Amino acid sequence: MTILIEQSDHFGAEVEAKTEPINERELVLDGGFLITQTNSFGHMFRAYNDAESERHEGVENFYRKNHTYQSIDFVKKMREEYAKLNRVEMSIWECCELLNEVVDESDPDLDEPQIEHLLQTAEAIRRDYPDEDWLHLTGLIHDLGKVLNLPSFGGLPQWAVVGDIFPVGCRFDESIVHHKYFKENPDYNNPAYNTKYGIYSERCGLNNVMMSWGHDDYMYLVAKENDTTLPSAALFIIRYHSFYALHKEGAYKHLMNDEDFENLKWLHIFNKYDLYSKSKIRIDVERVRPYYLSLIEKYFPAKLKW
């Protein structure tokens, strides 16, 4: 069955899905981006409980550590340390090339170097939305924060770099993947942190909510503090693209303000390409490099502090 995702007349509105009996292994997104319904290992995307997947055991062990150690005290410590942006000065493209050294242990759908995923995402968006160059660039840079795993950036363990993110300082929603492992988290039984709102208030805005530490928040910090001219929707995507409990399951909306809801529309569009573009098909880096260098020059300074 082919799934066609149709957009309404004004861009950014809610999308409507319909089905047509064509091919059960294909998926068509907005502008004709054709992909399979299964990942590069032959399993469904984000199948975290599929014991037959060759990535299953490693991914589950990752989330056991992630959910145990991502406490509010840990997040505060990481934010304070990495807000200094004193690790290195380099360009966006130099950072892209560094990701050749990183493979995401939390991802059940991909075991390729991360630069492959960045280009697959960006090029899929570019085909469907040729006039939204800021969104192309967002696809390229959204995972650059994964350099935190490298020694020159502190060599953080993968549980502190990748994986789905979630708020700390309030109850861990049951929709979060492998929720059972939160029982070992020091915040789980803390009455200050284990209620619906915890330390927050209704519609306080996600900008006022502390998320588990990782590449999302770090790359948001790098972009913001280096005075990028990307629009607010791009920064929202960078910061919350791994917040699957929100944009897939609809959790934590009680903490969102009006601006968050507007930006969430863009994140829903982006997420389809971030998730479903993953494949073993390689992008010709030298062919697309000049285009992305031009976008980097448009939206970022030549060198950034990391």
Results as ranks from 00 to 15, higher is better:
residue 2 T to H: 01
residue 176 I to D: 01
residue 6 E to H: 14
residue 79 R to C: 13
residue 290 P to I: 06
residue 135 L to A: 09
residue 137 L to H: 04
residue 246 L to Q: 07
residue 288 V to C: 11
residue 290 P to R: 03
residue 145 G to E: 02
residue 52 E to L: 14
residue 295 L to F: 11
residue 255 L to F: 07
residue 108 P to R: 04
residue 25 R to W: 10
residue 64 R to C: 04
residue 90 M to Y: 04
residue 56 H to N: 05
residue 67 H to R: 06
residue 166 F to D: 01
residue 300 F to R: 00
residue 260 D to T: 06
residue 202 E to P: 00
residue 193 Y to A: 12
residue 250 G to I: 13
residue 187 D to I: 05
residue 32 G to P: 03
residue 8 S to P: 00
residue 166 F to Y: 13
residue 207 N to E: 13
residue 188 Y to A: 13
residue 184 E to T: 14
residue 305 K to G: 09
residue 39 N to R: 08
residue 223 A to N: 05
residue 179 H to P: 00
residue 276 Y to T: 11
residue 29 L to D: 03
residue 175 S to G: 14
residue 215 H to W: 01
residue 122 A to H: 02
residue 27 L to T: 04
residue 140 L to I: 11
residue 162 V to D: 02
residue 275 L to A: 05
residue 117 H to M: 10
residue 246 L to N: 08
residue 78 M to D: 01
residue 35 I to M: 10
residue 26 E to S: 14
residue 51 A to D: 00
residue 139 G to L: 08
residue 261 F to Y: 07
residue 120 Q to C: 13
residue 212 S to A: 15
residue 258 D to N: 10
residue 178 H to V: 03
residue 133 D to W: 05
residue 228 T to C: 08
residue 31 G to C: 10
residue 303 K to W: 02
residue 118 L to M: 11
residue 59 V to L: 07
residue 182 F to Y: 12
residue 182 F to W: 10
residue 10 H to S: 10
residue 292 Y to M: 10
residue 219 M to I: 09
residue 270 F to K: 02
residue 36 T to W: 00
residue 274 D to V: 06
residue 207 N to S: 15
residue 115 I to D: 00
residue 134 W to H: 14
residue 201 S to K: 15
residue 30 D to C: 13
residue 80 E to N: 12
residue 142 H to V: 09
residue 146 K to R: 03
residue 112 E to S: 15
residue 19 T to I: 13
residue 281 I to R: 03
residue 157 P to A: 12
residue 151 P to R: 07
residue 87 R to I: 00
residue 79 R to T: 12
residue 270 F to I: 09
residue 133 D to E: 14
residue 207 N to K: 15
residue 57 E to A: 15
residue 188 Y to D: 01
residue 105 E to V: 13
residue 243 F to C: 10
residue 198 G to I: 12
residue 129 Y to D: 02
residue 108 P to E: 05
residue 300 F to A: 04
residue 235 L to V: 02
residue 139 G to S: 08
residue 79 R to L: 14
residue 6 E to R: 13
residue 126 R to C: 09
residue 188 Y to E: 03
residue 9 D to Y: 12
residue 270 F to T: 07
residue 268 H to W: 10
residue 155 G to K: 02
residue 304 L to K: 03
residue 62 F to P: 00
residue 287 R to A: 15
residue 232 S to T: 07
residue 73 D to T: 11
residue 261 F to E: 08
residue 192 A to N: 12
residue 115 I to R: 05
residue 191 P to G: 14
residue 243 F to E: 01
residue 265 K to V: 04
residue 68 T to E: 11
residue 165 I to S: 11
residue 167 P to G: 13
residue 126 R to M: 13
residue 270 F to H: 06
residue 128 D to W: 08
residue 204 C to Q: 10
residue 267 L to A: 10
residue 255 L to N: 04
residue 42 G to L: 12
residue 286 E to S: 15
residue 7 Q to T: 07
residue 231 P to C: 13
residue 279 S to A: 12
residue 242 S to V: 03
residue 304 L to W: 01
residue 282 R to L: 12
residue 295 L to R: 02
residue 51 A to T: 03
